[in-house]
């Protein structure tokens, strides 16, 4: 296989069919960019899950003075010292519990103020308005139900809250975004494949004189098909490059614009994008080459 000969054939083929080539490049770029975005969103969700699940705990809120009417288990008013000690001992006895931290009202108020600095209620709500709690860290965050069933309704326990639930809404949103990206990508891949098939067909037709002679003089199938396959793969390579550019621009946008505004999320960055790019190149070129190969099987019989 003479590389120079093949390269010149590819150049001729792509130029002759410029509009179709552009269409292939753009559609491949869009589908690969969406595929990459979908992969990156998944990475982002995983990274956030690892980060937050580690921090997020089960909160066992203890009864406050004012809870007596609202919660049956608080009928005795605020939690007593004895109840508090008992609850802590019971928590530590459970095998799923890794660690128990006590948070008193002052700490709760401090945290609440940190998280809601602009909330107008800050002045109104005093430390007394907030419940004290045990922050329970689980060995396996999925085991929340064990705590909930053991402690909900116990005397002195106001309520048990799995803080993961708050995050699950966010993850649900991100998963939804990923699904949408994946769905649009699937459609774009179909468009890209159809365009590749059509481009190869047009290319094979416009070069039927050459391929006819090639078959006549005994060029191997590989030699006859290679320029077309290489042509499609090369167009896909351009598309993959464009898609990579789009992802890098997206990365800049997330880090320079979005990150300063949404500080509580740690966004994945360049290393993850760079990991996805080679994958996109391989997928794009492979997809184009396979599509071209199967198209040619039909149009260039021995």
């Amino acid at each position: 296989m003479r590389a120079q000969f093949v390269m010149s054939e590819i150049g001729v083929g792509l130029r002759r069919n410029l509009t179709m080539t552009i269409a292939v490049v753009v559609s491949v770029a869009l589908s690969l960019a969406l595929a990459g975005a979908s992969l990156l969103v998944r990475d982002q969700v995983n990274s956030m899950k690892g980060f937050w699940y580690d921090k997020v705990q089960v909160a066992v809120y203890l009864c406050n003075k004012s809870d007596a009417k609202q919660y049956a288990s608080c009928s005795g008013g605020a939690v007593t010292d004895q109840q508090r000690t008992q609850i802590k001992a019971d928590l530590l006895k459970l095998p799923v519990v890794a660690d128990v931290q006590y948070e008193n009202k002052q700490d709760a108020y401090k945290h609440w103020k940190e998280m809601n600095p602009d909330n107008p209620l800050t002045g109104v709500v005093g430390a007394d308005g907030l419940p004290e709690s045990f922050r329970v860290k689980l060995k396996d965050p999925q085991q929340y139900d064990v705590i909930a069933s053991a402690f909900a309704g116990k005397p002195g326990v106001q309520s048990v809250e799995d803080q993961r639930k708050i995050l699950d809404n966010l993850f649900g949103l991100l998963n939804g975004l990923q699904t949408v990206a994946f769905g649009v990508m699937s459609l774009m891949v179909c468009v890209a494949l159809l365009l590749i098939v059509n481009t190869v067909r047009v290319s094979a037709f416009s070069r039927r004189r050459e391929t006819g002679i090639m078959r006549l003089v005994g060029a191997s199938n590989f030699y006859v098909q290679m320029p077309f396959i290489a042509e499609a793969a090369f167009a896909a390579l351009l598309g993959a490059a464009l898609a990579s550019g789009l992802l890098l621009v997206g990365n800049l946008f997330v880090h320079n614009w979005l990150q300063p505004r949404v500080q509580f999320i740690h966004f994945i960055g360049l290393p993850e994008v760079m990991r996805v790019i080679p994958l996109l190149v391989v997928i794009g070129m492979g997809m184009a080459a396979v599509a071209a190969f199967f198209t040619l099987r039909k149009y260039l019989k021995v």
Binding site: R209, I213, R215, L216, V217, G218, N221, V302
Partner: peptide
């Protein structure tokens, strides 16, 4: 088949040149 055809030469009425 391609290898077999390399041992044949073929000429046509319409020349079939590029």
């Amino acid at each position: 088949v391609p290898h077999m055809r390399r041992q044949l030469g073929t000429v046509f009425q319409d020349f079939r040149l590029l």
